[in-house]
Simulated assay, not measured.
Amino acid sequence: MKKSWLIVGLCSLTVMTACQEDLAKNETYKDSGNTINVNDDRRELYKEHNNGNKSEHFGYVRHQKSPVLGEQMSDNHYTDIDREKVADTISKYCTDLPNVQDAATLVTDEEVLIIYDSDTKDRDLTADQVKKTGMSVVPRWYRVYVSDNFNLRKTMESYSYLDSTSKNAETGIDKLIKEMKKSPQGQPVQDEENANGDVMDIRNRSTNVEKE
C-alpha cells in the first residue's frame, strides 16, 4: 500500500514539474484582447534594454478584427501614438541621410512636417529621401511635407506646444505647410497621389497635362 502511494506521489510531482516548465516556456507569450504579442515585455520602441544591449528578438504582433459584429476597432489603433517619440525617430533617421546635417520634425494628428538643413546639390533627390523617411515611420494615411528652408524651423517650434484642440492651431499649421511647399517635395508617391500623399483629381491632372 505504501509503495502504491509512493508511486502516485512521484507521478503527481512529475506532472506538476512538466506544467511549470510549460508555463515558463510560454511566459513571454501574452494574449490581450484582439492583440497577440510575442516577446512582449513592455519595453519602449527603439530603446535599448537596461543592460545597454539591443534586443536580438524579431518583432511579431498579430491583430484581429473584433469578434463582435459591427464593433469598430480601427478608431482606437492610433490613439496611443506618442507623437514626440515618432518625431524624434524621424529626425534621427533623416540625419542619417546623405547631405542632411540637421532635421526638425513636427507630428500632428494627420501630418508630418520635416524641416531640414542640407548642403545637397540635388534638392529634389534629398527632398524625396527625407519625405520617404518620414513616410516609413508613420501610418500610411499621414501626409508628409518637407522643406530645406531651415529658417522655418522657429515657426515650427512655436507650434510644438500646441495640440489638436488648440485654438487656431489648424490655421497656423496650414500656413506653415503652404510655405514649406515652396521647397521641393520629391516625387509623387503613387500615380493617384501627389508628392505629399494626397489623392489627386485625375481629371484635373489630365487637364493640366494637356495644357502643358
Rank of each mutant, 00 (worst) to 15 (best):
I90V: 08
P188A: 06
E192N: 08
F58R: 05
H57F: 05
A169L: 15
L152W: 02
N39A: 08
N34F: 08
N151L: 07
L97K: 00
P67S: 03
R153G: 03
E210C: 10
H49M: 11
M73R: 10
P67D: 02
C94K: 00
K167R: 14
K211L: 08
L45S: 09
R203Y: 15
V38M: 07
E193L: 08
K2S: 04
K132T: 13
E84V: 09
G172L: 04
K178C: 07
E27M: 13
G70T: 09
S32W: 13
V209P: 02
E193H: 11
Q72I: 14
T17F: 11
D148V: 09
D22R: 13
M200Q: 10
L10R: 07
M156Y: 01
L113I: 09
Y161S: 08
S136R: 04
A24K: 10
S4Q: 06
N204Q: 09
T126F: 01
D88W: 03
Q187P: 05
L106V: 15
K92Q: 02
E192L: 05
V86K: 03
K47W: 04
F58T: 15
Q190C: 15
D80W: 13
P67E: 02
L23N: 09
Y46G: 02
E170G: 02
M200D: 01
R62P: 01
